[in-house]
Design a protein around this nucleic acid. Sequence first.
DNA 1: CCCGATTCCTGTAGGC
DNA 2: TGCCTACAGGAATCGG
Length: 271
Amino acid sequence: MPELPEVETTCRGIAPYVVGNIISNVVIRDRRLRWPVPRDLRKKLLNRKVLNLERRAKYLLFHFDHGCLILHLGMSGSLRIITGDQPAQKHDHLDIAFESGSVLRFHDPRRFGSVLWTSADPMQHALLAQLGPEPFSMACSGAYLHGLSRGRRQAVKTFIMDSHIVVGVGNIYASEALFRSGIRPQRRAGRVSRQEYEKLVQAIREVLQDAIAAGGTTLRDYVSGEGRPGYFAFELNVYDRGGEPCPQCGHPIKQLRIGQRSTYYCATCQR
DNA sequence: CCCGATTCCTGTAGGC
DNA sequence: TGCCTACAGGAATCGG
């Protein structure tokens, strides 16, 4: 399931095959994603050059001189670079072929992903305009999170997973970051101290950075198409380890549900 | 405004 | 062995 590290890894992996290349064909096999793939997408893309590729939150932005392709991997989406003659498999919803002979193939079994087009500034698009800061940016400070959280009664885990607050913290990394910063996930966001938010921001950055580093494994496998999720090689301290001994203190890791999401923490190490 | 619940979807795992 | 249900999750949207 792609979280920010996987999207970042994907962005780096496909950029050399995409940026500066001209699109020679577009094949849409299934429009039924999170939102319908625009009917005129092929017309928009054909014979156009990708000027730049960037990640914003978990979105990939393919910039053209007349607009921008906005792509989200959802939870089961993936992008591969293949050679043009490989037959499409089930759930291969979209191909973007380049004059170089490379084909960018979008695969998404659960169809939570999205492929959209905008002719305007993509940052002003309804899906992107309200997003919070990137976790590695200066704007995402302990003071920022502390300030926004005052008066909020929701769980701190739910708070940091809200993409309007800060982007890129999915369910796995939320539990991991809270463990690393020693904060119980069910604490009310408004009752977490400024100092604790400083630690939490630091922990979010470390977790994501470590995961991006582990995602490098996927990056190397990328073109050959192993498709292994980046966090496979990533050391998870608490996520999906309910009942197992805490790696720090040995007490069993607790599991509960917060906001309909599985949550893991150590009651001894986290307060 | 705030916030929890629901919703979209399919593959997989677990229970019986 | 096979059927059925629960669960996984990003994020918009709904409802209280």
